[in-house]
């Protein structure tokens, strides 16, 4: 059973890291979690991002957060990537598999996956 003692151990391990976490996060990944996003499948996308970011060892560099309706409901699930000094990248019609790829290629490798992004001609 996942006991409170185990949670306690997590706390002891994490306590020193907390300071480190604050103020970092050069990259922000935002998932649209309004009704439109949730209905289109945003929950597994978000969970895949959280999972893969951690697996790739990017937790200190990348923050994954949730937002409301971005206004392009027909393209949900939508994932936006913000990086200091760079233009925002908007990934559309995401799936957990695509999210995994985005973590590997974009967040880790620095290469935007153009075919998953929103094109101007779509708008």
């Amino acid at each position: 059973m996942k006991s409170l003692a185990e949670l306690q151990a997590i706390k002891d391990r994490m306590k020193d890291k907390v300071v480190l976490r604050e103020g970092t996060g050069d990259m922000r990944v935002v998932v649209g979690m309004a009704t439109c996003g949730i209905a289109a499948g945003a929950r597994p996308v978000l969970n895949a991002l959280v999972e893969e970011v951690n697996k790739a060892g990017l937790s200190e560099k990348v923050t994954v957060s949730q937002t409301g309706c971005i206004g392009i409901c027909q393209f949900e699930p939508v994932v936006e990537v913000f990086e200091a000094g760079k233009e925002k990248v908007t990934y559309v019609k995401m799936t957990a598999e695509k999210a995994k790829e985005v973590v590997e290629k974009h967040l880790k490798g620095g290469r935007v996956i153009a075919e998953y992004t929103l094109k101007d001609e779509n708008l």
Partner: peptide, 19 residues
């Protein structure tokens, strides 16, 4: 229990899910 460790820490979220 966490005494200031954020609840959105990956290990904490994972613990909650497994619990």
């Amino acid at each position: 229990v966490l005494e200031g460790v954020p609840l959105d820490t990956y290990e904490v979220i994972k613990w909650i899910g497994e619990n």
